[in-house]
């Protein structure tokens, strides 16, 4: 039996058995990433706008949110939501919810800064011109400032989303059955860490590199078509 476990055989039978489990892990990874991507964008938009254009209270609130979640490790956030928060609210928090909370709030804080920087890069004259027409603040924000800001923000968001996608691996620490956790389970049962972890790394590479290439293409196209 020993030869079956030989690390030199990348496509060893044990790995073939592991593939479906890794596939399931990948689905969980993608699910978590998708939820966090949407949630962090919304959080970023809300807090970014609050910090950019909100009154004193909202501004302070946005700063507090961004500083707290940017200045603590995301792994600590995930573990806090998983282990500490249930004590406080007195109900069970699933690994998925804890990971999604940690990753979304963390990534949301970074996204808020991206939104803010993007909006700040829009020249002041745009506000003046829109104000001079008598447009409401909300209308200026959503029709004039944000559409222009979004274009500047795409490179930053590309990096952010790729970072977020990689960070989903941290959910393995609280036993959320995504790719890395599945890999650990498989390697524990079949003693094939070389094959499994190499394959997991390859899966990440196979997703991240094409994704960043596509996002960069999209950005270049937007820049070219930009009026």
């Amino acid at each position: 039996m020993d030869f079956l476990l030989s690390p030199s055989l990348m496509l060893s039978p044990s790995l073939m058995i592991s593939l479906p489990a890794l596939g399931r892990g990948l689905v969980y990874t993608l699910e978590l990433a998708a939820v966090c991507l949407v949630a962090s964008l919304l959080l970023g938009l809300v807090f970014g706008v609050m910090r950019y254009a909100g009154g004193r209270m909202l501004h302070a609130l946005a700063i507090a949110y961004v500083e707290v979640f940017r200045n603590t490790p995301v792994l600590v956030q995930i573990l806090w939501f998983f282990f500490a928060l249930p004590i406080l609210v007195n109900f069970e928090i699933s690994a998925f919810i804890a990971a999604a909370l940690g990753l979304s709030l963390n990534s949301g804080a970074f996204s808020a800064e991206i939104f803010r920087a993007g909006m700040q890069a829009v020249p002041k004259g745009q506000w003046e011109a829109a104000n001079a027409l008598g447009m409401s603040r909300a209308r200026v924000m959503f029709r004039i400032v944000l559409p222009q800001a979004v274009r500047n923000m795409i490179p930053a968001f590309t990096n952010r989303w790729i970072e977020l996608f990689k960070l989903t691996s941290l959910a393995s620490v609280i036993a959320y059955p995504e790719l890395v956790y599945s890999a650990q389970q498989i390697s524990n049962s079949y003693f094939n860490p070389v094959e499994v972890f190499t394959l997991v790394a390859a899966i990440f590479i196979a997703i991240v590199i094409p994704a960043s290439y596509l996002l960069r293409r999209l950005e270049a196209r937007l820049r070219r078509s930009a009026p």
Partner: peptide, 26 residues
């Protein structure tokens, strides 16, 4: 402001809108 028109030194047109859309927005 809706009843006072202003024209700026730097034009301040909305770059993501066509000329027509710029004039329609207000």
């Amino acid at each position: 402001r809706a009843r006072i028109g202003i024209v700026f030194q730097q034009f301040n047109l909305f770059p993501h809108m066509t000329a027509l859309e710029n004039i329609m927005e207000g």
